[in-house]
């Protein structure tokens, strides 16, 4: 650590802050991140049996990269622990959020299952649907692109007057 004159004069409260030169750790971290990025791109060219497995491999590599960033660039490796506890508890709750929502995925209706012959979705006739889920006037190729910003995140089962039902 460096005590310059003006700093030393500044304060009797100026405690030891133990700043060491970590450059070599940072260089190693960025090198590892580059290698892992290359591995991510490489792994995406290979088909590992199913999309799910590919996705899990990509997420696992991303998690290794994120861990390196958190440990070295964000200094968690050199800290006492409170910040790490805060960080990890948020990851835990993200996990709860994801797992419990995915347990529910089977209860969600697909576009195909919810759309009846007459184009109604889950009992709602096309003309009674909110404006933002209605199909646009120029339904060019007939692809499904009827939903507005509000409908596509979670409520996919409830709100799908999709184009493909009419074809």
């Amino acid at each position: 650590m460096s005590h310059q004159e003006h700093n030393a004069a500044l304060s009797s409260h100026h405690e030891e802050n133990h700043v060491h030169d970590h450059t070599k750790y940072y260089i190693a971290t960025i090198a590892a991140l580059f290698v892992l990025t290359a591995i991510t791109v490489g792994a995406a060219q290979i088909h590992f049996g199913s999309n799910f497995v590919n996705l899990m491999i990509a997420m696992a590599i991303a998690t290794v990269k994120a861990t390196l960033v958190a440990l070295f660039f964000m200094h968690l490796r050199w800290e006492k622990g409170m910040n790490a506890i805060v960080f990890l508890s948020s990851i835990f709750f993200v996990g709860v959020f994801m797992v419990f929502t995915f347990l529910d995925i089977e209860s969600r209706v697909t576009i195909e299952a919810a759309t009846a012959e007459d184009g109604s979705v889950a009992g709602v006739a096309p003309q009674d649907m909110p404006l933002y889920v209605k199909a646009p006037a120029q339904a060019g190729e007939g692809e499904a692109h009827a939903n507005g910003a509000g409908a596509e995140t979670k409520a996919e089962g409830e709100a799908k007057p999709e184009g493909e039902a009419k074809h």
């Binding site: 576009i111 933002y132 199909a135 646009p136 120029q138 060019g140 190729e141 692809e143 499904a144 692109h145 009827a146 939903n147 507005g148 910003a149 409908a151 596509e152 996919e156 999709e162 184009g163 493909e164």
Partner: peptide, 16 residues
Amino acid sequence: GNLYSYAGASVPGEYL
């Protein structure tokens, strides 16, 4: 969403 107006071939749901 409904701004999707790609003219080429596509799979239903690409706008998502």
